[in-house]
Amino acid sequence: MRILWMAVPTLWRVAVAGMVAYRAEMVIWILSATLPLVMLALWDAAAIAGPLEGFGQTDFARYFTVTMIVRQLTGAWIVWELNYAVRSGTLSPQLLRPVNPLVYNLFETLAAIPWRLLVLIPLVGGLVAWRPEVLFVPEGWRVPLFGISTLLAFAVAWLVQALFGMLAFWFDQAMGIFSVHFALWSFFSGYIIPMALLPEGVSRLARWLPFYSSLGAPVDVLLGRAGGLEVGAQALWVVALSGLLHLAWTRGIRRYGAVGA
């Protein structure tokens, strides 16, 4: 453990250097996450006639702006990386390193965040120019809670992706299963439809699922539609998923070796 802490500065430098080397690709990847804007266009047009369940045009603009920001800050790609590494065998040399490949990916994911912020500036700027009411001042205590909630959402999103990536130890179709998960996630996370607009019974249940913990919770915390309770649920998911990750990794690695790679 102490060795890992000593490696932190180096890991960080390597990850940042990687992000600088692949900056053009990185920016293109970041720009591909434009679905919140596509969704905003639809909901905005729908709200011209009048608010839907208390959501007017301004509310939708704020909602999807914050959604886009949180989606960027919590973006991960470990599922693709892990799936590729397991299937192609490039995981083997990674396992020889003294640092767990998962930890290395975590550093890379974090090192991408400054680029994400850089790309967000013109996007959010454009939204503000289009509709200045997007800017608002939240209640003071919501800002730190939003920070914590976003951090937890990042953890949930990364852990879930890592778990789906590890399915590649057992199944050929791990990426397909992840795509099915993505569809479910988009319904229940608030990505395409705000929780408040889902049928009452559905949204009451969906609030406690990991989908919502990985995106919708911080958005709703900042916009005053969720609070400490939802953040508590996020923390519980982080603990549960971390346990599951440990279990899946130790078993998966054993199986990987058994395949003869």
């Binding site: 729908a46 397909g176 319904f187």
Partner: peptide, 27 residues
Amino acid sequence: VEFFVGTGNVVAILLPLAVIFDRSASV
């Protein structure tokens, strides 16, 4: 697997439309 992915995509497009047109006749 692609059958489920495809079904999920269709629902993801239709669900917001269904919610919207449930409340207003035209957009």
